[in-house]
Amino acid sequence: MSRGPWHVAVLMGGPSSEREVSLNSGKGVADALESRGHRVTRIDLDKDVALKLSAAQPDVVFNALHGVPGEDGTVQGMLDLMGLPYTHSGLVTSVIAIDKELTKQALVPHGIPMPVGKIVACETLYDGDPLPRPYVLKPVNEGSSMGVAIVRDDSNYGSPIARDAVGPWQLFPSLLAEPFIKGRELTVGVMGHEAMGVTELQVKSGFYDYDAKYTAGLTQHICPAQIPADIAERMKQLAVQAHALLGCKGVSRSDFRWDDEHGLDGIFLLEVNTQPGMTPLSLVPEQAAANGMDYAELVERIVEEALSLSESRSEVCQ
């Protein structure tokens, strides 16, 4: 596979709740590619995105979008129809991985441990708790811990939750309810079919929500995580297995909770992110750096795999 130079269209921004994160990811990716001598066209996703891509005629598209519609299969389907190679996972994988319930249906039968949850209509939350407290409420298809609430006995939401209490139940018609897994927050990046490492996320206050992820100083990243070797190895195995079962391409990131009082039985996969952030605070670039791979090399590796997969498909179709 040629190292280029390539013409890369970097898709970023868009209308999702994670727009600012995507713009930061896209800028980092575009700057890195330009620093390596590649031609870059930066495209902020809007209704004219197909026309802009057609005019640009790139060799490959770097999908730096986060959330809907860039991570749920919508953009992937458009790029497939246009015949443009693109980074990260394809249409089917994106549809499944963005949906936390579909992800469970795909992974749990293969032995991947995930919290047992259920979809609840938000209107029912005002009548009573769907699970014993503490429990977690989260949107089924949002990323970056958007709209997540932990309902505890001492929470100020009320018991049952009050209609005027501020929370995700005011924004979504239904939510996924899961038991709260106490313990430690960890994450594993996967590139190709190899785990990049295990990072522990220690939040200074509250939990690992959107602000904690993207505000400097609110969360300490410990990479590599200071955990027993068998726990780290098991998380790596589960992350690689989930990556393969879902059909992920390029880079994915699997998020875990670990109840350290229960050893290997305390590991639970929460979700698989098919398009991890590429901002200065993001976890995958940090794990790559711990393995001796700088940011620009990481970006090039992701683009290179997308081009290689495209060439392989073309050869099969000939």
Rank of each mutant, 00 (worst) to 15 (best):
L201Y: 13
L201Q: 15
E305Y: 06
L171K: 15
S144A: 13
A64S: 15
G67T: 00
L270Y: 09
Y295P: 05
A288Q: 10
D260P: 12
G250E: 08
S54Q: 15
G263Q: 05
A289W: 02
A229Q: 10
D230I: 02
H66D: 01
C223E: 15
V272S: 10
G117A: 06
A229D: 12
Q318G: 13
C317M: 12
A288V: 13
I43M: 05
T124H: 12
S144E: 10
A289G: 02
Q105P: 02
K100S: 10
E18P: 02
P15Q: 09
E233D: 14
S310T: 01
I98S: 03
P132G: 09
V60K: 04
E194H: 14
A216S: 11
S308W: 12
E142M: 09
G266D: 01
E101L: 14
V92Q: 09
L264F: 06
A296H: 03
M191S: 10
F62L: 08
V40S: 09
H193V: 09
Q287V: 01
G143K: 05
S2F: 00
Q220L: 11
K213V: 07
P134D: 04
L79W: 13
K47V: 15
D72V: 11
I112N: 05
Y208W: 12
G14K: 08
G189T: 14
H88E: 08
V60F: 07
E286Q: 15
C248H: 07
F180W: 14
Q275C: 09
G83N: 08
Q237M: 06
M293L: 12
A9Y: 02
M278K: 03
A229G: 01
A195M: 12
D260H: 14
I112H: 04
P58I: 00
L23I: 01
M1N: 03
T219D: 01
G197I: 07
V303G: 05
L298R: 09
P69T: 00
P285D: 12
Y210R: 08
A106I: 02
F207R: 02
E34Y: 07
A306D: 06
E200S: 14
P85K: 13
S205T: 14
L270G: 05
V95S: 12
A296M: 03
M12H: 11
S252I: 11
A212N: 11
Q275G: 03
S144D: 08
A306I: 11
S16G: 02
M196F: 02
K182V: 14
Q170I: 00
A216K: 12
V75T: 13
L176A: 04
G73I: 09
F256E: 04
H243W: 09
A296R: 02
K27L: 06
V140S: 03
D164F: 08
M293G: 00
M1Y: 03
L53T: 02
D259E: 13
S145A: 13
L125Y: 03
D48G: 07
E233L: 07
R152Y: 01
E261R: 14
P113G: 11
E142R: 11
H243I: 13
D44I: 06
A162C: 09
E178N: 07
Y295L: 10
V190E: 04
R152G: 01
G197V: 10
E71L: 06
N63K: 02
K100N: 07
